[in-house]
């Protein structure tokens, strides 16, 4: 899979790192090199587009789970309980000490 033109880096090297690119895990310099390649090379661009589309599909298929609204409230109320427990422990320690 290649457009047949010479590139700064070859198609195989670019395609090997497609996931790092679409997952934004690539260093800035490498990213720019890949971008230049994609600007010149239609087959690689199509391949990257497909992988991006699959990632987007997966994200959409179950990306709508959000934390229940009550979760934050429950956590904060438990933390208040912990605080009160610590405060009464401290008070007892003062009294007995």
């Amino acid at each position: 899979m290649s457009c047949g033109h010479p590139h700064e880096i070859d198609c195989a090297s670019v395609l090997d790192r497609v996931y790092e690119y679409i997952d934004q895990e690539m260093a800035e310099d490498d990213c720019a090199t890949v971008q230049r390649h994609l600007d010149e090379c239609a087959p690689c661009l199509a391949e990257f587009g497909l992988e991006q589309a699959v990632k987007a599909l997966v994200h959409r298929s179950c990306g709508c789970d959000t934390a229940p609204e009550q979760l934050r409230v429950k956590v904060l109320s438990k933390i208040r309980q912990v605080q009160q427990g610590l405060a009464s422990d401290a008070a007892e320690a003062v009294q007995s000490g």
């Binding site: 789970d65 979760l71 934050r72 956590v75 933390i79 912990v82």
Partner: peptide, 30 residues
């Protein structure tokens, strides 16, 4: 919290378990 809940859901696959896991995690974090 939002990310932790989704991660917990990915690990436990059960919303109730995910909630418990997040609560326990946040208490420890506190």
């Amino acid at each position: 919290i939002e990310v932790l809940y989704r991660v917990a859901l990915s690990i436990t696959a059960q919303p109730a378990d995910a909630e418990d896991l997040v609560q326990d995690t946040l208490l420890r974090a506190y």
